[in-house]
């Protein structure tokens, strides 16, 4: 059996809008990935710990509260501290274009903003 790609989808922060996260989760499921869904209002600590236990290749973060600049890099940092720098992080949500370079510099591999199709996310994962 070819190794399954496992992806953790999480919503850090306090906003309660998980439609986007669920939409992506379903698209990833249909693309043949195993998606570990962790639900709303997760701390970066809980997300990173879950990613390590689940041994995922990717963590997808969705944030619509505006706190992405602190929450996303924190997850990357925690993964490093937990000896899991190889677990890759991507993000999505309402994220201003100006913030994207900073997030990428902090180790977030890719950012998907409103208007991105789920196929773009699937293609990105398959290519990287």
């Amino acid at each position: 059996m070819p190794n399954k790609i496992r992806i953790l989808i999480a919503k850090p922060g306090l906003d309660g809008h998980d439609r986007g996260a669920k939409y992506i989760a379903r698209a990833l499921r249909d693309a043949g990935f195993e998606v570990i869904y962790t639900g709303l209002r997760q701390t970066p600590e809980a997300i990173a710990a879950a990613a390590v236990q689940e041994d995922v290749q990717w963590v997808g973060l969705s944030c619509l509260s505006g706190a992405h600049n602190s929450l996303f890099p924190r997850v990357v940092q925690l993964l490093k501290e937990m000896n899991a720098p190889d677990i890759k992080v991507f993000g999505g949500g309402v994220i201003p274009a100006d913030d994207i370079p900073g997030l990428k510099a902090a180790g977030i591999r890719e950012i998907f903003t409103p208007g991105a199709s789920s196929q773009q996310v699937v293609d990105y994962i398959n290519k990287n």
Binding site: R29, I36, Y37, T38, E45, A46, Q53
Partner: peptide
């Protein structure tokens, strides 16, 4: 999924409060 082979593993949603407890290890399996 019998079609794509993918899965949504959602049992953790109810258990995430234990994610950072070093004495608990939770693993989702398809």
């Amino acid at each position: 999924s019998p079609f794509s082979g993918g899965a949504i593993l959602g049992d953790r949603v109810r258990m995430q409060q234990h994610a950072t407890d070093g004495g608990v290890f939770i693993r989702s399996m398809g």
